[in-house]
Amino acid sequence: MSLSPTIELRTEDYPLSVNRPDLLATPTGKPITALTMEAVVSGELSPDDLRIAPETLLLQAQLAEAAGRPQLAANFRRAAEMTAIPDAEVLAMYNALRPRKSSGPQLAELADRLENAYSAPECAALVREAAEVYARRNLLARPPAADHSATDA
């Protein structure tokens, strides 16, 4: 989009909706100032016009960083990557990260998909890290044959 990577926000720019509306646009390319009641009533707006754009999340990440909150900023950068992923798939990916839901290769595949299909390297890194820890802590999906239940007795 039109966003220049050279914009450097300071905490004084917050709230962006008040101080820098010029920087805010919907993922559909409308400026935030276009989100008026007239536009709602005339049917010009769709639910997609009320979503956050990845560029906006990167601006908020800058603000979080400027306010001394690097973890919050990292969260916003992952979120910016996730805006491209459909709702149902986001939930499916979350479920795949639950304990013992995925095997090592399945998590590796998920990370690759994030990186290649969605250009989401930060999210992919989080999944790869999870895969390594899950392997060490016995939290990968268990092979189905190894189930010993009391009923075998």
Binding site: I52, N75, A79, D87, V90, L91, V127, A130, Y134
Partner: peptide
């Protein structure tokens, strides 16, 4: 760790969920 797992989550699944919420504003 055991109670977290009993809740069917890990720190990584919850961190992913946190970003999912932010990604929808």
């Amino acid at each position: 760790e055991p109670v977290f797992v009993d809740g069917d989550d890990t720190p990584w699944s919850k961190a992913f969920l946190a970003s999912a919420y932010a990604s929808r504003g």
